[in-house]
């Protein structure tokens, strides 16, 4: 790791101030994406602003017809939240599938979303539920937030404070785990909230998380696996690497969507 200065603010305002004074600085949430990259010397932030002592950034709360999760809430805490398991177990399953238990003990929803790793699980849930990302400056719809791999709508000095998920009656996540990294080789989040039907895919696309309009359209008639039987998505634009071909990833998108639908309807 290159050296850096280390800061531990206790308010969002202080954190924003520190970022403003350290333009090459980075926020440190759970650290499980950032620190490994820094250890490999692939990132060289001049300062780390640790958010762990900032008040009011953790917890899972029911607010009207939404579930609001503090950005610094760790995956393990989201996964075991009774509130969430009650109203939307399909979302609770997402942090429960991230990485491994120790990663879930430390990693946070805010960190995961801000990083927008193309194989991360939470981006699929955000896009698949039409979540709203709430920062210290504004509210950003998930459809506008994720802008390609490792790229988001976040501006300099902007800090994710919370994420608000509308409660969908039917929602489920199905993931094909990468055997080495634990990330999603392909992950599909499906949801139905009234007439809003979403199918969001992570891991497969070369530009990061994306929706599948053809599937969503077909599911409008009936939200069941049968409705997309025989449907495929093109392999163009799928990731290609030693772990999976574009064709296989495209195929998995169909398979996992159907499995997620079965789960959501169970």
């Amino acid at each position: 790791m290159y050296n850096f200065t280390f800061h531990r603010p206790t308010t969002v305002r202080q954190a924003a101030g520190l970022l403003a004074r350290n333009p090459d600085g980075k926020l440190l949430a759970g650290g499980h994406s950032l620190l490994p990259v820094m250890k490999q010397r692939l990132a060289q932030p001049s300062a780390l602003v640790d958010l762990s002592l900032v008040e009011g950034m953790t917890g899972v709360e029911l607010k009207g017809r939404s579930v609001v999760i503090g950005a610094m809430t760790r995956h393990a805490d989201v996964a075991k939240s009774d509130v969430l398991k009650e109203v939307m177990p399909g979302l609770a399953a997402v942090p429960g599938s991230v990485g491994d238990p120790q990663v879930r003990n430390r990693g946070t929803i805010g960190g995961s979303i801000a990083n927008n790793d193309p194989n991360a699980d939470y981006p699929a849930a955000c896009l698949g539920l039409g979540a709203t990302i709430i920062t210290n400056k504004r509210r950003i719809a998930a459809d506008d937030f994720f802008q390609g791999m490792y790229t988001t709508a976040l501006e300099d000095g902007e800090i994710i404070v919370k994420v608000s998920f509308p409660i969908a009656k039917k929602a489920a996540y199905e993931k094909f785990k990468h055997p080495a990294s634990g990330f999603a080789l392909v992950g599909v989040f499906v949801s139905k909230r009234g007439s809003d039907i979403r199918v969001a895919v992570t891991g497969a696309g070369s530009e990061g998380v994306f929706r599948v309009p053809t599937f969503e359209e077909a599911l409008k008639k009936r939200f069941t696996a049968k409705s997309i039987e025989g449907m495929t998505i093109p392999a163009t634009g799928m990731n290609s690497d030693i772990h999976a071909s574009p064709e296989y990833r495209a195929h998995l998108v169909s398979v996992l969507t159907k499995r997620a639908l079965n789960k959501a309807n169970a």
């Binding site: 280390f6 531990r8 440190l28 650290g31 499980h32 620190l35 490994p36 250890k39 490999q40 780390l48 640790d50 762990s52 393990a76 491994d100 238990p101 120790q102 990663v103 003990n105 430390r106 080495a180 990294s181 634990g182």
Partner: peptide, 28 residues
């Protein structure tokens, strides 16, 4: 060096964490 193997697991405030992916200063 990629937080995969778990040889470094300790308990941080009673919860398992990978000590290779935690800064000493985070444990103040």
């Amino acid at each position: 060096d990629t937080s995969q193997c778990g040889a470094c697991v300790i308990h941080l405030d009673g919860i398992a964490a990978k000590a290779c992916t935690t800064l000493a200063l985070q444990c103040e």
